[in-house]
Design a protein around this nucleic acid. Structure first.
Length: 618
DNA sequence: TTCGACTTAAACATCT
DNA sequence: GAGATGTTTAAGTCGA
């Protein structure tokens, strides 16, 4: 009846094994570019150069337009001489634009913000800003010149009325244009402020630190002290113009002292931009109090920790104390640096983890340079050892490495990432109890959609043995599977059928009629019987196992020695953060113990909880 | 190449 | 009748 044929049931277990490893390996080899990003390449000197070039272009354009307009408006008045005079204005203006004096607070703020802007954003803003500044400057200069010229003409010609009117009209036009440009600039500034890209008023002072792109931790600390402890120096608005003369090229033309801080400027820029936008949106939404800067009645602004009774008070405080000023901006930058540092650290650790996993994977897929301990041990050893195959989803960093032993046979370039049913090779023969691995990787198997590297028979047996009465109904076995393994929460049609099939197939599973219906139990003797006869029973078997299985004498000795320590240092060290390796050690122990058990006695149960170590070490 | 273990799919019977 | 349970067969993979 195909009662369990589900949509997910694959027609062939090998269909979904294709090419996953390549991607994973590619990911593992995802070497992050350490080189400077475009943004980090932009130094203050570059900015100045860029500004100069932009200024030249814009100035020429503006002058050209102005000249054309002037020619149109007062063509009769203009003599070739005056045109020459106008043309001669280009030079001083352009030169003037090249001087640092034209760097306004806005521009400086742009530079300050450069680390949080993408290069594209930066260019765009700079262009806009520069164009507006230039327009204004040009108009002012031009207006000045026009006035001078006007006076000259008036003096020379003693002012014919008509000319005077035309000149007045010219003046009016220029004044209007000047006003227009000023308005545009105001709008531009407003828009910048709205976007959170500009945080200070034109006359506000800028901390010199802000001009440095890369900051070493000491600088960060110093800056943090300044911005959190020292009062804000925003009073020198008048003398602030002194910063106009600030030589940016000397301010921070040097490359970042700490290259790490500038590795992801683009990302950083996006982040900061998003953060600011998010904050503004959060501020807009006063209904919810899950403000990231507000928690447990405390302002979480770095270095603040002010206590508030309600959210509204906090919001007021936030708007008043942490408004858009240079102090807040600097604090924000510091916080960004902190985050960036953490992200870098995380990236490093991720990379390290990837390298570790890649290394282990490569090792496991190597032809056979190293012995294949567990797998082969269990193979020749009789039943019970749970096959230890590597989980097929390296994408999950927490993938237990326990199954290393079998990895060489299970992990293949095409199968490594397979999540669906695959034809895995369990070279062991249920030799060992799987409980240590399952227990220690419980969390992993419960959450990761990874096929457990154990045979159905092993799992069924484990489920039954874990039950208080050592017996389970079929449904309870199902439940155990789904409870213990995320993988079995899907593909039910496949694995449930397999479970039933295994229950019926293996004699070790005995169906018992119970009051609550039919339950399944494990016949351990039958389970043990399934082990190859040639192995069981002889102490020499173990040696045979170890040698046959690739355990050289030295390795065997070393292995047993390490086992004697009961901790298996090699693995326990690595398993500090990874229960998998720890379970690998347990599995090895189990494997070895299983072999010894069968070598020494037949009755030994391989159930979890026993202490296999003495069997090996003596 | 053969064999055994294992997985998967499927058909079928029985029971609830 | 539908679904769950249980049995059996067949085909295929894999390692020894």
């Amino acid at each position: 009846m195909m009662q369990e044929a589900g949509p997910e049931a694959p027609s062939n277990g090998t269909t979904n094994q294709n090419g996953v490893v390549a991607g994973a390996e590619g990911g593992a080899r995802d070497v992050r570019a350490k080189s400077a990003t475009p943004s980090s390449d932009i130094t203050a000197a570059d900015l100045v150069n860029f500004q100069q070039q932009q200024a030249l272009q814009v100035a020429r354009q503006i002058l050209l337009q102005q000249q054309q307009q002037q020619q149109q408006q007062s063509g009769a008045i203009k003599s070739p001489k005056s045109n020459e005079k106008q043309a001669s204005l280009q030079m001083p203006v352009s030169v003037a634009m090249m001087t640092p004096q034209v760097i306004t607070p806005q521009q400086m703020q742009q530079i300050l913000q450069q680390q949080v802007l993408s290069p594209q954003q930066l260019q765009l803003l700079l262009q806009q800003q520069q164009a507006l500044m230039l327009q204004q400057q040009q108009l002012q200069d031009f207006y000045k010149k026009q006035q001078e010229q006007l006076h000259l003409q008036l003096f020379q010609q003693h002012g014919s009325k008509q000319q005077s009117k035309e000149v007045s009209a010219q003046q009016l036009v220029f004044q209007q244009q000047l006003l227009q440009v000023q308005q545009l600039q105001q709008q531009h500034l407003l828009s910048l402020q709205r976007q959170g890209l500009l945080s200070i008023q034109p006359n506000q002072n800028l901390p010199l630190h802000s001009l440095t792109q890369g900051m070493i931790p000491a600088e960060l600390q110093q800056l943090w002290k300044e911005v959190t402890g020292a009062p804000v120096k925003e009073e020198n608005s008048a003398s602030n113009n002194g910063h106009r003369g600030l030589d940016l090229t000397s301010a921070s033309p040097a490359p970042p002292k700490n290259p790490l801080l500038n590795q992801h400027p683009t990302t950083n820029g996006q982040y900061s931009s998003h953060t600011l936008k998010r904050e503004s949106s959060a501020l807009d939404d006063h209904s919810h109090h899950s403000h990231p800067l507000y928690g447990h009645g405390v302002c979480k602004w770095p270095g603040c920790e002010a206590v508030f009774e309600d959210f509204q008070s906090f919001l007021k405080h936030l708007n008043n104390e942490h408004a858009l000023d240079d102090r807040s901006t600097a604090q924000c930058r510091v916080q960004m640096q902190v985050v960036q540092q953490l992200e870098l650290q995380l990236a490093k650790d991720k990379e390290r983890l990837q390298a570790m996993m890649t290394h282990l994977h490569v090792k496991s897929t190597e032809p056979k340079p190293t012995p294949q301990p567990l797998n082969l041990v269990s193979k020749s050893v009789p039943e019970a050892s749970p096959p230890l195959s590597l989980p097929q989803t390296p994408t999950t960093p927490t993938a237990p490495l326990t199954p290393l032993s079998q990895a060489h046979s299970v992990i293949t370039p095409t199968s490594l990432h397979t999540v669906g049913p695959i034809r895995r090779r369990y070279s062991d023969k249920y030799n060992m109890p799987i409980s240590p691995d399952i227990v220690q990787n419980k969390e992993f198997y419960m959450n990761a959609d990874v096929r457990p590297p154990f045979t159905y028979a092993s799992l069924i047996r484990q489920a039954i043995l874990e039950s208080p009465e050592k017996q389970l109904t079929l449904n309870e076995i199902y439940n155990w599977f789904t409870r213990m393994f995320a993988y079995f929460r899907r593909n039910a049609a496949t694995w449930k059928n397999a479970v039933r099939h295994n229950l019926s197939l293996h004699k070790c599973f005995v169906r018992v009629e119970n009051v609550k219906g039919a339950v399944w139990t494990v016949d351990e003797l039958e389970f043990q019987k399934r082990r190859p006869q040639k192995i069981s029973g002889s102490p020499a078997l173990v040696k045979n196992i170890q040698t046959n299985l690739g355990y050289g004498p030295a390795l065997s000795a070393a292995f047993q020695a390490s086992m004697a320590e009961n901790n298996i240092p090699l693995y326990t060290t690595a398993s500090i953060g990874s229960p998998t390796l720890n379970s690998l050690a347990n599995a090895i122990r189990e494997e070895m113990n299983g072999a010894m058990d069968h070598g020494n006695s037949n009755g030994s149960d391989s159930s979890p909880g026993r202490s296999p170590l003495p069997a090996i070490t003596g």
